[in-house]
Amino acid sequence: MATPVTAPQPVLDKPLQHYGRRTLVRAAPGAPQGSYKILKIAPLTPHIGAEIGGVDLTRPIAEDAAAELRRALLEWKVVFFRDQHDFTPDDHLALAAVWGSPEVNPFFPKAETAGVSRLAKDAQAIGNENIWHSDHSFMKAPALGSVLRAVEVPAAGGDTIWADMGAAYDNLSDELKSRIEGLTAVHDWVPSWGSTMTDEQVAAFREKLPPVEHPVVVRHPVSGRKTLYVNEPFTTRIVGLSEDENRELLDELVLQARIPEYQVRFRWQADSIAIWDNIAVQHYAVNDYYPQRRVMERIAIAGAPIS
C-alpha cells in the first residue's frame, strides 16, 4: 500500500462565530432575476436549491426549455427533479449535454455506458464520501457540474447536502477577503484517492494527474460571482504561506462549507435527479444508512480552467 498522505484537516478550536443576519443572495450582484415560462420553480431555501416541475426529462429537451434549465441552475446552483421514471442512460447523456460534454472521473470503475458512472454503496461506519468537496478540483479543468440520478435509495438516510460557496465568500470579513485576494492553492488527489492505492498505482496516476493550482477565490465563468474555492479533501496548501499560516488560514476557509445558512439538503427518492454547478457549490453525501444500500448514476460535465 502507498504511504497515506493526509490533507490538512480542520480543527475546531477556533469557532466560526457570527452574530446577526448573514448575507444570502441567489445571484451575482446586478444579475437579473430569472423568468420562467416552461419550468415551475419551487425553492427549497431562499438562495440555494429548487425543485423543478414542468419538464419530462425522458423526452427530447427543446432549446427554449434548455435555456430555462441553464438559467435556473445559474440562479439556484443546484436543482432537483422528482419522478423521472424510465430515465435511460441516453436520457442522462442528453440532459448533461444541455451544459456540455461528459467527463469521466479517472478513479471510478469504467462505465458500461460512456460517461455514466454507477455508484453502488453499502455505507460503512467510516467512509470516504462524507466530506465536503468540489468534484474534480484536483484537475486543471475541474468539472463544470454533475447530473446525479437515484436508482435505489435507503428507506431512511442517504441525503446529500450542498453549500453555496458564493455565500461563503460574501460573508467573510473584509479583512479576510483582502488577505486571500490573489492567493492560489494547491489541489491534489493523493491524500484522498491515493490513500488506498499501492505506490505503483499512485505513480501511474500521478503521471496524468499532477498537483494543480487554482485561485483561492474564483470568478464564476458565467455569472462572474466571486466564489470561495478550497475544499477539505483536495486542497492541500496555499502557495506562499508558512506551515503555521497555512493551517490557520486553510482551516478557517474550508470550514465555511459547514455553515447551515449556506446549505440545502435533499431527501432522495428513486428516480429523483439532481444537477449542480460544481464551481458554485460543494456537496456532502451523508453516510448514515448502513447496512442499507444506495445506488446512484452520475455524469460529470467537463469544464475549463478557472480563474
Rank of each mutant, 00 (worst) to 15 (best):
L95R: 00
F87R: 00
P46S: 12
A203V: 06
S178F: 04
E112N: 10
D271E: 13
W276K: 01
E232Q: 15
R118T: 15
S117E: 14
D122G: 12
E129V: 08
V98W: 02
V222T: 11
A150E: 04
P43K: 07
P60Y: 12
T113A: 10
I259G: 01
V286I: 13
H283L: 13
K77T: 07
V55G: 02
P233A: 08
H214A: 07
G158W: 01
L144S: 06
V254W: 01
N105D: 15
P109F: 09
S195Q: 10
R70P: 04
Q201P: 04
E181T: 15
R206E: 08
L255Q: 09
A143T: 09
N171V: 12
T184G: 10
S137M: 05
P29A: 13
P43T: 14
E207D: 12
I52T: 06
V254K: 00
E252K: 02
A270C: 13
T58A: 14
Y284E: 05
S117G: 13
R118Y: 08
V153Q: 01
D91Q: 09
V239T: 13
T227N: 00
M197I: 05
L93E: 00
S242I: 08
I279D: 00
E248C: 08
A204P: 02
R206C: 05
V295P: 02
P106Y: 15
A274K: 01
R71C: 07
G53S: 13
L95F: 06
N278F: 10
E112K: 02
N171W: 03
L176M: 15
V153G: 07
V239D: 05
I126T: 14
K121D: 09
I126D: 07
M139G: 04
I52R: 01
Q33C: 10
D170L: 08
S101Y: 04
S192Q: 12
L39T: 04
F107I: 13
V202H: 06
V55T: 05
L73E: 01
P215E: 00
V25N: 07
R247G: 06
L74S: 14
L24N: 02
A111N: 15
E75W: 04
A204K: 15
I273K: 00
T196C: 06
D91Y: 07
W76A: 04
A120W: 01
L241W: 03
P221S: 10
P233E: 05
H220I: 12
V281Y: 00
A257V: 13
W132Y: 11
S192F: 09
L95P: 01
E51G: 07
E200F: 09
P109S: 10
A300L: 14
L228E: 01
P43V: 12
S101Q: 09
L148Q: 03
E63G: 04
R71T: 12
A62I: 07
F266M: 11
S134T: 15
A97C: 05
V230G: 02
A62C: 06
G20R: 00
R82I: 08
H18D: 03
E297I: 11
E213R: 07
D122Q: 15
S195Y: 04
Y19T: 11
A257T: 10
L172T: 07
T23Y: 10
N246G: 09
N130A: 14
S134I: 14
A96C: 03
